[in-house]
Design a protein around this nucleic acid. Structure first.
Length: 181
DNA sequence: CGATTTTGACCCGCGC
DNA sequence: GCGCGGGTCAAAATCG
C-alpha cells in the first residue's frame, strides 16, 4: 500500500492516525478510555480535511462479554485455548480519507477480508507482523459515507513502532484538552 | 525467494 | 440441528 500523508488538526503534514505504542502511552490511552465522563463516540476533533472520533469501548454485559463500539454492539469472540478471559482493549477511529490503510507506524499483514451485511464495502482484517505481538485492526469504509474510513484497533502492542512518530502524544494532548473542555 | 495479499474454506456462537 | 454472520486459516498467487 502506498503512503498516505494527510493533515491533522492544523498541525503540519503528518502520517495519520498515529502510533499506537505500548507501555506508558497505551496506559495513557486506557486512562482516557476508562474515564466514565467520556460519552460513547464523542467527537474529539475536526477540521475541514479530517474528522475523527473515538468510539469508546464499553462493557455492556460482563457475563456475555459484549462490548460496544460506537453504535454497534459486537460480540467478543472466544479463542481456542479457552484462556480468552482477558478482554483486549478496542477502540475505533473514524477518519475522512481517500485511502483506507492509514500509516500508523506499524507493519501489518492482511489476513482476511469479509463482506459484512448492509455494507457495500468489504472489511479488511490486519495483524501486526512483529513477533509475538498480537495486535489486530480492521478497516472498513462506511457505506453511508464513502469518504469515511473506520479503523478499529484491538490489543496493545508489545513493542514500539518500526516507524516512530511523535504524533501520538500530540493527539493525546488534544484529546485531553477536549475532554477537559 | 521471503514477505504479503488474495480468496474460498472453515470455525464458532447464536437464534430460530 | 441448521443456517447465518462475523472472524480466521491457509494455500496459491503476487509482490518487491
Amino acid at each position: 500500500m502506498e503512503n498516505h500523508v494527510t493533515q491533522f488538526l492544523g498541525s503540519s503534514m503528518t502520517p495519520f492516525p498515529f502510533n499506537l505504542s505500548p507501555n506508558m502511552e497505551n496506559s495513557h490511552v486506557m486512562n482516557i478510555f476508562s474515564n466514565n465522563n467520556v460519552p460513547n463516540g464523542v467527537v474529539l476533533g475536526s477540521n475541514q480535511d479530517i474528522r475523527f472520533r473515538i468510539a469508546q469501548v464499553k462493557e455492556v454485559s460482563q457475563k456475555n462479554k459484549f462490548i460496544q463500539i460506537d453504535q454497534n454492539v459486537v460480540k467478543k469472540s472466544g479463542k481456542k485455548t479457552g484462556e480468552m478471559k482477558n478482554r483486549e482493549p478496542r477502540f475505533a477511529f473514524h477518519t475522512r480519507s481517500q485511502v483506507e490503510v492509514l500509516d500508523d507506524g506499524y507493519r501489518w499483514r492482511k489476513y482476511g477480508q469479509k463482506v459484512v451485511k448492509n455494507t457495500k464495502f468489504p472489511r479488511s482484517y490486519y495483524r501486526c507482523t512483529y513477533g509475538e505481538c498480537n495486535v489486530k485492526k480492521q478497516v472498513q469504509r462506511l457505506s453511508e459515507d464513502e469518504g469515511i474510513v473506520v479503523t478499529t484497533y484491538e490489543g496493545l502492542h508489545t513493542h514500539s513502532a518500526q516507524k516512530p512518530s511523535d504524533n501520538f502524544e500530540q493527539i493525546l494532548n488534544q484529546m485531553e484538552t477536549y475532554l477537559l473542555n
